[in-house]
Write a protein that binds this DNA or RNA. Structure first.
Lengths: 104, 104
DNA sequence: GTCATTGTTCGATGGTTGTCGTAGTTCGAT
DNA sequence: ATCGAACTACGACAACCATCGAACAATGAC
């Protein structure tokens, strides 16, 4: 199922800081978040520049989604992912900014 | 060895964001950091209010120390731990603030 | 319909980690 | 010098997790 399935995203008040931190702690996922933040737009699954297989990428996207870090929009066979920046900034003001300020 | 041993702390420029995030992602460690931030002072190992055994506490303190989140000062048999707030704020401005803003 | 593209799901696997109990070490006080 | 208090170190164990390959599902194009 490449597309039809509808995912459940945590409401803003269901986002837990521990889950967000754990999601951001992995190098691959942190890189994905950086790419999302830097692009400022949506990125399709295949659009991420990461050195893992498709199935591993799906795993990371699910982790980020369930933590409340990203949202997904379906279009055709493609799924476009975007940062939940507003939700995160409201809940944890400064967190994303601080994380993204880290030198790579 | 309760005291004599000198630990090596990462220099500020050796602190990696991934390690900091992983250190903060654990509920017990996050709670310890919250206690440090709220108290504004040092807390001895036995001064933390956590529901784990001493050996587990030592493990968490080591994780926080090696990630660059805390420093330790030896005095007698006690080790006083403090937040490396200045180092973290300089490296990742807003991160600590955002994490601490999270509702418990 | 057939096929390529896109993404998910399902084991399996190896590595990491949080937890504990036990033992050991250092320091200060008696 | 003996004792207790404060931590640390080590081994063990269960749980979790990042990774992959292979198989599957849905969409769009031909």
């Amino acid at each position: 199922m490449a597309a039809t399935q509808q995912y459940v995203y945590p409401d803003q008040d269901e986002i837990r800081i521990e889950a967000v931190l754990a999601a951001l702690a992995d190098p691959v996922r942190l890189d994905m978040v950086r790419q999302l933040a830097q692009s400022g737009t949506e990125i399709s699954c295949s659009g991420f520049d990461v050195a893992v297989t498709k199935s591993t990428l799906t795993h990371h996207l699910r982790t980020l989604r369930e933590a409340g870090v990203i949202m997904g929009r379906q279009q055709g066979t493609a799924r476009y992912n975007s940062l939940r920046r507003k939700d995160l900034d409201e809940l944890f003001p400064g967190l994303l900014q601080g994380v993204l300020a880290a030198r790579r």
